[in-house]
Design a protein around this nucleic acid. Structure first.
Lengths: 217, 217
DNA sequence: GTATGTGAAGACTTTCACAGCG
DNA sequence: CGCTGTGAAAGTCTTCACATAC
């Protein structure tokens, strides 16, 4: 099978969603000096079955050696190509509150393929101030930045009440993928992909399995 | 069928994972003054089929009226009971960097069932300083806080290099569920549940579907 | 011997479609 | 008439188990 996705086969989205996790773990193994790994070792580290990992990778080609396993550096490289993160993608960030500051200050994006190229807020008092070396700009400046960098990805880190409005603006300006930290489900056209990060959703998932033990009981 | 989970039926985890999203949306509808909704309306708002929503809810009881739909406030209440968030859970936060500050300053936890009751860091210079009204404490003080609040949930917001060590400590002290912001997969015993938030995982998922357009090309 | 890649089997999830009730 | 709740059907995903290659 050819390396990159061929149109002959539709790759399940759930498979794609695991690849970044494989990549993250392989990079860790690489950093630890491992030259070779196996589906079994990876599975152990990730809490997945070895068959799952082999099957997932088989959608994209044959990367291993029977009897030996996978070359860590090589598999990293291949996954980076498949995910198209063998380069740096420009990302814009809307919202310069505490969360926006945390994201803009995080230095773990670049070596995994992403760079925040613009931070925007609607608060007059914040515009013109800086986060590290980045100047916070007016919402009105978004379009120019998107066009300049041909930016396709945006992070929404504004309050829930403003999020849909911001999303509409971003989509109108050409953004194709949104990572939304606001705790609402956005309404977007079919060609736009949205992923959500809301810690409370995870907490509420956890509590189902915990024995109730609240503060006010 | 009885209201709360009966042992007769094992409810799929994937169903549980959607309930917090239903709840979030129902609360929004409630805030907007809606008295009644339908599986169709909810599905539209969430991008899910109406059948999916009805089937999911059917695991827990019969909450709707045929011909009418669901009473928003009532369904909210029932979901809160099912998820056990009809009260406030104590949560501890490890790591007082930018992200820790953002989490500790966020005021959207309490009304959805969670309160950060302690913030901890290993940095001597941070210990004793405050985030809002919360004093940052030494890692050594974790056990006392967990016991005092009978805390079962922790947030890890420390660098990847320290995360496993922190997780081990938390688990030894009785924590049952961890929300991990560090970009690594933790190794934990079977009785501990971990959920992960790593924005890069989402970005790398998005880029698979985008046409390559990086900064340095 | 060891570990991959893969059809086939099994398990799980979603959707269909309609009886039944308000 | 409209919408729920639900068996049955369809679809999707994971695991099994083994031929194959190193």
């Amino acid at each position: 099978m050819s390396l990159l996705t061929n149109a002959l086969e539709e790759i399940p989205d759930i498979v794609i969603s695991r690849l970044p996790i494989y990549l993250r773990t392989l990079r860790l193994l690489d950093a630890q000096g491992a030259e070779v790994t196996s589906s079994q070792e990876l599975g152990q580290l990730l809490g997945l079955s070895s068959a799952q990992i082999r099957k997932d990778l088989s959608h994209f080609g044959e990367f291993g050696k029977q009897g030996t396993g996978y070359n860590v550096a090589y598999l990293c490289n291949q996954l980076e190509k498949i995910l198209k993160v063998d380069c740096v993608w420009p990302v814009i960030l809307i919202g310069a509150g505490y969360l926006g500051h945390a994201l803009a200050s995080y230095n773990g994006f670049e070596h995994r393929g992403f760079r925040i190229v613009g931070v925007f807020d609607s608060d007059e008092n914040k515009i013109g101030t800086t986060i590290g070396a980045t100047v916070i700009q007016s919402i009105d400046a978004i379009a120019a930045t998107i066009q300049r960098y041909r930016c396709q990805i945006a992070i929404i880190a504004v309050p829930a009440t403003a999020a849909q409005q911001v999303a509409d603006l971003l989509i109108a300006t050409g953004i194709k993928s949104i990572l939304c930290y606001a705790p609402i489900t956005l309404t977007v056209p079919a060609h736009v992909r949205v992923e959500y990060i809301d810690p409370v959703i995870y907490f509420q998932h956890m509590t189902f399995y915990l024995t109730k033990g609240c503060i006010d009981e």
